[in-house]
């Protein structure tokens, strides 16, 4: 965790690099190096993305899937989507879910990272191993375990709650009710995502030079002041990038919702963007509509994270 990567000679490096033609042959090298990646991305993402754009202007359903030529219908798919109030419900729900999860994950993860810096070596190792196990657990495996933990009849969560005197939880099924469905989903998502945040922020924290704290301490600052004035500004880049990734990932959350829905959630009440598009397309066979919906969602995601991306571009020497 402590391998601090010091890319100190960055500035002179750039100056050196921008002298074009100093080695004429080298001008083409970077493009050649990018060719394999670009080919893969073009084939597996670019072309489908393009096809999806085309499809979003067509009437493309099951009949077309089986060979009938698709009909051009202009913006009708988009019109149908935008006027469908259910889409807006799903979008609002997804944004709320995403922001809530990203916020909780960031707060808990950062708190754990700070905690790691103030505890002894032994407890830190135990905590890190615990987080690692949660992190490394395959999603499907952990989702299955969480279903079992929240099982209405034999689940250990209900058992504990009943033991604590909450008799109402005997045989309570968590996934039927919309709110408690999302409580379970949030617990699962936060449990899975906190380790990454905690480790990333901790790695950032360990790079803050100790002298800064000592100086601040001598100046008579409180622990909270030191955290605000010394720690936060120095780990800000890490917090930014990790926060951005959380927002991207939480808006795209699919597997967790999909599996929990299958385990007993009511689909209409619990769809988020991902499951909504999936069920629209592969479920109902309305591919054109689903394609329009995913373009729409991409735009929302970019809009949501635009602020972050701009800050990153400005602050970071990308």
């Amino acid at each position: 965790m402590s391998d601090v990567r010091v890319a100190a000679p960055d500035v002179p490096e750039r100056r050196r690099g921008t002298s074009p033609g100093r080695r004429g042959r080298r001008r083409w090298t970077p493009y050649l190096l990018l060719v394999p990646v670009l080919l893969v991305l073009a084939a597996a993402l670019g072309y489908p993305l393009f096809r999806q754009a085309v499809m979003s202007f067509q009437e493309y359903g099951l009949a077309q899937q089986f060979g009938q030529p698709p009909r051009w219908i202009g913006l009708q798919n988009y019109r149908e989507l935008v006027t469908d109030s259910y889409l807006w419900v799903v979008v609002a729900r997804s944004i709320a879910f995403c922001l809530a999860n990203a916020a909780v994950t960031m707060v808990v993860g950062t708190a754990l990272a700070v905690l790691m810096t103030v505890i002894g070596r032994g407890p830190r190792l135990v905590l890190q191993i615990g987080l690692l196990l949660a992190w490394a657990m395959p999603h499907l495996a952990s989702l299955t375990v969480w279903q079992w933990l929240f099982d209405s009849q034999y689940g250990v969560v209900n058992w504990v709650l009943v033991r604590l005197g909450l008799e109402g939880f005997a045989g309570h099924s968590w996934l039927i009710d919309q709110l408690s469905f999302f409580v379970v989903a949030t617990i699962v998502v936060v449990w899975m995502s906190v380790p990454f945040v905690a480790f990333a922020v901790y790695a950032g924290l360990t790079q803050v030079p100790g002298e800064l704290y000592e100086a601040a301490q001598i100046d008579g600052s409180t622990a909270w002041q030191r955290f605000r004035a010394v720690t936060v500004p120095l780990v800000r880049p890490v917090l930014l990038i990790v926060g951005l990734l959380q927002i991207i990932w939480d808006l795209k959350v699919f597997t967790q919702i999909f599996v929990l829905q299958d385990a007993g959630g009511i689909t209409g009440d619990t769809n988020l963007i991902g499951t909504y598009i999936y069920r629209l397309g592969l479920g109902e066979g309305r591919f054109g509509l689903a394609a329009a919906a995913s373009w729409f969602v991409l735009l929302i995601t970019v809009a949501l994270s635009l602020y972050y991306v701009r800050v990153l571009v400005r602050e970071e020497d990308l």
Binding site: Y47, P48, R51, I277, L298, L318
Partner: peptide, 23 residues
């Protein structure tokens, strides 16, 4: 390119499934 690398991760994968399947 660096920006594209970031933005590519935002594409909602569920929407691409159909075209990827067809591909």
């Amino acid at each position: 390119f660096v920006l594209a690398v970031l933005i590519v991760q935002m594409i909602p994968a569920e929407g691409l499934f159909i075209s990827q399947f067809k591909l």
